[in-house]
Design a protein around this nucleic acid. Sequence first.
DNA 1: AATATATACATAAGCAACCAATATATAAAT
DNA 2: ATTTATATATTGGTTGCTTATGTATATATT
Lengths: 122, 122
Amino acid sequence: MVAYVYIFLLYSGMNKQLIKGSLSTIVLKLVGREGRMYGYEITQRVRQLTDGQIRLTEGALYPTLHKLEAEGYLNTKTEIVEGRARKYYYLTEEGEAITAQKVSETAAFIQHLQKLLNLNTL
Amino acid sequence: MVAYVYIFLLYSGMNKQLIKGSLSTIVLKLVGREGRMYGYEITQRVRQLTDGQIRLTEGALYPTLHKLEAEGYLNTKTEIVEGRARKYYYLTEEGEAITAQKVSETAAFIQHLQKLLNLNTL
DNA sequence: AATATATACATAAGCAACCAATATATAAAT
DNA sequence: ATTTATATATTGGTTGCTTATGTATATATT
């Protein structure tokens, strides 16, 4: 007799739409605190720091990185590592300033959200 | 002689993009805890609870209310109060369930965001 | 040798959510 | 008479994200 075990993987779908405007802030902050990061590394770091619950897709990340670079908040340096190109991103001075500003705005917004949703009392 | 006082109102513009997909959650939660609310009242409550820092515009609110009603999460009852029509919104049973779910998802997201932005240590 | 997985960057199409502006209308205040 | 506050609603536009696709190399598996 053979026992068949059916494993149902229920992908929650709850992963969706949870970034919403805070993506550039997250990217800037991560790059700032690690000194330099490349795109793929950022996706993995976000996944790791959120226990796999937030998955940063490339379609969202790369346009955001390019935009932040165009705005003068990030600089790049491409290196070849193990046969593959890696594009490292660094904060510019302006990038450091805007990061601090964006992080504090997000912190304020979180406070408001907690008040509106009665999360303070939890 | 007449002294003209020019008052320059500098609208910060920082009000922008601060709702971030949490609008329907906020609306549902507020209506749920007050029992019933009408649109204008919601805009004023959000403004009051956030010390004027989050301004919920009508162009965002009314489509959201209509959508939540169409989805079966809100019911309405129109009353005439002091000559003006007021459209009160109530949570349906489904609305109560989805509110609890959305609030806990938002709470989880806030936790992730705080970790990514190093806000825990503040 | 062939295939799959992980690494690494990137773009295109499309949709949902939000903002700014506008519209209508009544009541109260100046 | 005009402005402000109350009250609901729509339209047009933009941004930000998702899904899907594309390219390419290195490593692991079969």
